[in-house]
């Protein structure tokens, strides 16, 4: 179950969307890049951890700014089409 808990600005959304796209790009690049391509491989590894860090720090920064509701075991999700932030509730026992 998802619950609408807030909204970010268009600029804030663009920022996280760029990190999101880059992370996806790096992940799919990792599937085809081999270790023998030393130069690119090292760049990729470094880039992946940096992008992950940027990604996480965006959520920390926004959570701090907007003080979004949270629950144990839940997670936040952003809808890139309307900038809405959703709280994804944890599944209860027996729920599929």
């Amino acid at each position: 179950m998802k619950k609408l808990i807030g909204k970010v600005t268009e600029e804030e959304k663009n920022e996280i969307q760029t990190f999101f796209e880059r992370r996806n790009g790096l992940n799919e690049l990792a599937k085809i890049l081999t270790v023998d391509n030393t130069e690119l491989y090292e760049k990729l590894v470094k880039d992946m951890s940096e992008t992950e860090r940027n990604f996480q720090s965006w959520w920390d920064k926004m959570a701090d700014k907007y003080q979004w509701e949270s629950v144990d075991g839940g997670s936040w999700e952003i809808n890139f089409e309307n900038c809405n932030i959703m709280l994804v509730m944890p599944k209860k026992g027996g729920e599929l």
């Binding site: 760029t18 796209e21 880059r22 790009g25 799919e28 690049l29 085809i32 890049l33 690119l40 760049k43 990729l44």
Partner: peptide, 16 residues
């Protein structure tokens, strides 16, 4: 395409 966009630091790597 993926490798070259990345190698060249092309701005499209972040949005394709």
């Amino acid at each position: 395409v993926k490798i070259e966009m990345y190698r060249r630091n092309h701005h499209w790597f972040n949005s394709y």
